[in-house]
């Protein structure tokens, strides 16, 4: 995994609350055995009509949303299914961070393990972001700080170990494998 330090991007905004992982990547695209190529079906049922033509009114199909690497959404983003295909699809599309007032547990965990930054902010910050699509934001992982174009700086919570792994491009499996002595000791103990 590539280390992540700072991310600077305009935002794309989906104001809906409770965006579930079935919307992020519908189940019919899960009959895959790899993690590549899911981006073209990201938000498929919102993004395309029945003929597969992009709906011009959908946020991600608008010209101003092209190249945005930060997705802002309403409360409880990523609820529902544990499918890791959701962060894989967001990353494959080009997103590197998601911002919401609340991010569902499994989706947040899956995101952190793939280098998609889950940024949880307070209500008023999120409201400002939703009202200002395309805002240029900076996310600094080391200081866990989101900076808005107004200059406002918002600290966001991020689990210490996940941050360390993301900053250094370390994957967690390596860490777990390094604990094999303790794991074997546990197995002898129980």
């Amino acid at each position: 995994m590539e280390p992540i330090k700072t991310l600077h991007s305009r935002t794309a905004v989906l104001p809906a609350t409770n965006i579930d992982t079935d919307q992020i990547i519908p189940a019919r695209f899960l009959t895959t055995t790899t993690r590549e190529g899911l981006g073209r079906n990201l938000f498929a049922d919102w993004r395309y009509d029945a003929q597969g033509t992009p709906r011009p009114d959908f946020v991600l199909n608008r010209p101003e949303a092209q190249g945005c690497r930060v997705l802002v959404a309403g409360r409880n983003l990523g609820c529902g299914s544990s499918r890791e295909h959701a962060p894989w699809a967001l990353l494959d599309y080009g997103f590197r961070a998601v911002i919401s007032t609340e991010i569902a547990d499994i989706f947040r965990s899956n995101s952190l393990k793939n280098g998609l930054l889950p940024v949880v902010v307070d209500e008023s910050t999120n409201r400002w972001l939703i009202e200002h699509p395309g805002a240029e934001v900076t996310i600094d992982l080391d200081s866990a700080m989101l900076t808005l174009p107004t200059g406002a700086r918002v600290q966001f919570p991020i689990e210490a170990f996940s941050r360390y792994c993301l900053l250094n491009g370390i994957d967690e499996l390596g860490f777990l494998l390094g604990r094999m002595g303790e794991i074997e000791a546990y197995e002898r103990r129980v």
């Binding site: 993690r35 544990s82 890791e84 899956n110 393990k113 170990f161 499996l173 777990l176 794991i183």
Partner: peptide
């Protein structure tokens, strides 16, 4: 509890998970 595929790999390889 449910886990993602990366964690499925962790458990297959180590029988353990990193959890808060």
């Amino acid at each position: 509890f449910g886990i993602g595929t990366t964690e499925v790999g962790h458990v297959l390889a180590t029988q353990c998970l990193l959890q808060r």
